[in-house]
Design a protein around this nucleic acid. Structure first.
Lengths: 139, 139
DNA sequence: TTATGTGCAAAGCATTTGCACGCTT
DNA sequence: AAGCGTGCAAATGCTTTGCACATAA
């Protein structure tokens, strides 16, 4: 099964139409390792699909987020970054060299449970990003 | 001591100049309870100081963040929100009614320490925001 | 007095919107 | 065949920049 076939069936399984634009954007996010702002998604995806336009990228990213295929995060700078929704994880970003490392969500779950009990909120979403100095950039 | 006097001495204690623009912006953040995007900061602060302009708001917010007087967070929507730097806390936002509640950072510190040991990064900054349904909006 | 900060005006981008056409189902 | 999705073009709005003047220390 090719990459595109995979995403095509993923979309259809989610009950939405499979279009070349959506596939190009999912493919781009997959091969970039995520963490792309909208303009970068466009810049890369348009190389796969030259007819792609900016408005379509914005609308498609919104759509894919709403449907849960894609997740929006942020790494500072005030611009949302997009990545494929998959295994739950977060990011540590090096402020010096930009190196990014993922870490799993597991260890936060206990705190989230505790916060639900404490506040009465039911938690459904979260953004968590850490910054610091990676081992190489530490003095 | 008036509100302005307080921020004036805070700025000078930090070794930076105290200007009417900086005071108006700090005052605005203080009385809004934080969580304002740049355009909202301008809209409110310009009422206190009519000569204030947008470029000044953007430059001043950047400056105050760099110097640690103000902190930038995000609550979705991809636009940074600003609040006074004070006691370390995070936010839970209700997706239904927008009600925001703070919770202290304490309980996360142990995990952060553990992540530092595990990844070799030295952590210096972090953004953490949770979304969900508040007690009133839960079915 | 001197360096820093601000206003003004304009430019630069990112993002959104309306509408007609095309493609998926 | 029907409805959703996209391209195009333009508008909108946020943010940044250059430069001259004002202000804090």
């Amino acid at each position: 099964m090719t990459c595109s076939d995979f995403y095509a069936s993923l979309l259809r399984a989610g009950g939405v139409r499979s279009t070349s634009q959506r596939l190009a954007i999912l493919h781009t996010l997959h091969h970039s390792g995520g963490h792309l702002v909208a303009t970068e998604v466009f810049a890369r995806a348009v190389q796969e699909l030259p007819s792609l336009t900016e408005p379509t990228v914005y609308r498609t990213l919104d759509f894919l987020c709403e449907r849960g295929f894609v997740r929006a995060t942020h790494s500072g700078g005030g611009r949302l970054e997009y990545e494929l929704a998959g295994e739950m994880h977060h990011h540590i970003v090096c402020k010096e060299c930009g190196a990014t490392r993922d870490f799993p969500h597991d260890q936060f779950q206990a705190i989230y449970d505790h916060l639900e009990a404490q506040t009465g909120y039911r938690l459904t979403e979260h953004h968590l990003t850490l910054w610091g100095l990676c081992p190489n950039c530490k003095p």
